[in-house]
């Protein structure tokens, strides 16, 4: 139901949106692009692992787009930039992944954090290559070889992001239901048992890790080419925290949660910044607390629960994708 009816409906609505509310395009493009890394986080959460460092791949994607664009002259070609970002983040994901998939839980989170902070420091340090904290300018690339005005270019990017997001949501949904996806869930509930089945938890985790890195990389590249800049902030730990935040907000049990979370997060951030003055962090923090304490299934999960109850179904979404409450001290 969720993926077969609502998901296509949302994509269709989003595709028609520029005809109705064109002033929304920029906002939604960011929402779509930033939902991509969140999908990656949701995938990792299936195995109970949370990365506090995925901003590193987001930054790698954005900076790769910037460097390749510069190297190609002008701004380069959008699809080549995205491909390059994909390739770079896959390579980086593989490299970092080989190390981090050996660890679990807090150690997994922290090692990711450490890697991303190293990248953050390097981006700030190598100012003559990266532009330091001012960031790297990304000139407007061509779209399928066409030079474009900003309006047309943004129109184009809107649909590119939407298409990539739809593709990613669909792919992640299929992945979660594939043997790899089931192995992921099994890793969370009992890793030893997975090994007895002859499945390598590390390899499974690595596959998903690289996929999540790729999603973050493409998301970063999209934000970069849309904003026209990549800054070291893209790799800072608070951004990694935001990705996890958005995943929980939207509901980490469903891939669609990435979109719902990303939308709500950006919406609150923009409106709070515009109308509540200097309290957007407070608003977001309260919201996160509220979700975790009172609706741990997230926006989508809670809606599914409500929908199920409404239709009298007995099946209930688990309170959290992370499993039932566990003992505090293992």
């Amino acid at each position: 139901m969720l993926m077969r009816v609502i998901f296509p409906a949302i994509v269709l609505l989003a595709a028609l949106n520029p005809l109705v509310f064109p002033q929304w395009d920029a906002f939604l493009t960011i929402v779509f692009a930033k939902a991509l890394p969140v999908i990656g986080i949701i995938l990792l959460l299936q195995a109970g692992q949370v990365s506090f460092g995925h901003a590193m791949f987001f930054a790698i994607g954005a900076y790769t787009a910037g460097f390749v664009g510069r190297w190609m002259g002008g701004g380069g070609e959008l699809f080549l930039l995205l491909l390059a970002a994909l390739a770079a983040s896959v390579v980086a994901g593989l490299f970092v992944g080989i190390f981090v998939v050996r660890y679990r839980y807090i150690f997994f989170a922290m090692l990711n954090l450490a890697f991303s902070m190293v990248l953050f420091s390097l981006l700030e340090k190598f100012i003559h290559i990266t532009g330091g904290s001012d960031g790297l300018r990304i000139s407007r690339p061509t779209l399928l070889g066409q030079e474009m005005s900003r309006a047309n270019y943004e129109f184009g990017i809107y649909y590119v992001s939407l298409a990539l997001l739809a593709l990613a949501i669909f792919g992640a949904w299929r992945l979660m239901d594939s043997p790899v996806g089931h192995a992921m869930k099994a890793i969370k509930s009992n890793e030893t048992r997975v090994e007895y089945l002859g499945i390598s938890p590390r390899r499974t985790l690595l596959v998903v890790y690289v996929a999540s890195a790729a999603l973050a990389g493409v998301g970063g590249a999209l934000v970069g080419v849309f904003q026209g800049i990549a800054t070291p902030d893209y790799a800072y730990w608070t951004r990694s925290g935001e990705f996890v935040f958005v995943a929980i907000l939207g509901g980490a049990g469903q891939v669609l949660g990435a979109l719902a979370g990303s939308f709500s997060f950006e919406f609150i951030r923009v409106t709070a910044a515009a109308y509540l003055g200097d309290t957007w962090q407070l608003t977001l923090g309260l919201m996160l607390l509220g979700i975790i304490l009172f609706a741990p299934a997230g926006i989508v999960g809670s809606l599914v629960n409500v929908g199920n109850r409404w239709r009298g179904r007995r099946t209930r979404e688990k309170p959290s994708p992370l499993g039932e409450a566990k003992e505090a001290v293992r």
Binding site: A109, F245, Q281
Partner: peptide, 22 residues
């Protein structure tokens, strides 16, 4: 939240961090 998963506990403290910064 003592009964919760580590990740959620981490996020609760992350939320407190954001609020305290503000």
């Amino acid at each position: 939240i003592y009964g919760y998963e580590e990740t959620l506990q981490l996020l609760v403290t992350f939320a407190v961090f954001m609020m305290l910064e503000n």
